[in-house]
Design a protein around this nucleic acid. Structure first.
Lengths: 115, 115
DNA sequence: CCTCGATGCTACATTTAACGTAGCGGCAGA
DNA sequence: TCTGCCGCTACGTTAAATGTAGCATCGAGG
């Protein structure tokens, strides 16, 4: 199998199942977090970096590029990154995760660790 | 507040916001994919590995351990990994992503790439 | 008993991704 | 002009993922 495709094709995209491509894209470090932090509106790259616990700008730019190519994020006219309408849809798609996360934490403390 | 569990605490767990911990956990390679592949029922470690495009067993075991500690996955009596009730809830939480992914792919081909 | 095959899981060397720090060119305001 | 922030990049270091091989264990068949 040749390496094929451009820089880095989304893993799983060759399967033809878009869910695989999406799961791979979102399964990279900071990707989900970035979308989450942009939920309240556009942020400058530096503000976004601060919101993401001071990610290294290398990864931040890489993720932003990927997210822009995926059509989820855009760089506004006057600067600042924001979600596209599609990106906002994506956010709302996994928004229920928020409430789930809280129930999960309760289950965490309620469930004993490995004995 | 200090939960501070085992080896590597989930990044973001120190923020006290469970969504951060969850986003970090799910934002690791193959984690989302693993949950996805277990949606149809339990799989043996090797079958799961095959389903995940032959991930290296190192990462697979690491993710399975994390997912088990998180209470999303369990190792059945007679062998084979399966989702716990909580894990199934998690899956159903980001199940809408599936339909979104297909709309996304259409938007992908409709949107011009880099000229 | 003894191999055979499959299970869950690990070792380890290599490759890749992420990190951390510094800095670039550009542009607006003081 | 001199700050100060903008988006973005270079580059050396550290951490994670990959790929291949193998271990111990168990159950079914011979």
């Amino acid at each position: 199998m040749a390496k094929m495709a451009a820089k880095h094709a989304v893993r799983g995209s060759r399967t033809g199942r878009p869910i695989m491509a999406l799961l791979d894209l979102l399964g990279r470090r900071w990707t989900l977090r970035i979308v989450w932090e942009l939920r309240g509106g556009a942020l400058t790259s530096r503000a976004l970096r601060a919101a993401c616990d001071e990610v290294s700008p290398t990864v931040l730019q890489a993720r932003l590029t990927e997210l822009r190519e995926a059509g989820f994020v855009e760089l506004g006219e006057g600067g600042g990154y924001g979600l596209t309408p599609l990106g906002r849809e994506l956010f709302e798609t996994f928004l229920p995760l928020h409430r789930f996360a809280e129930r999960w934490q309760k289950a965490q403390v309620a469930t004993p660790r490995r004995p």
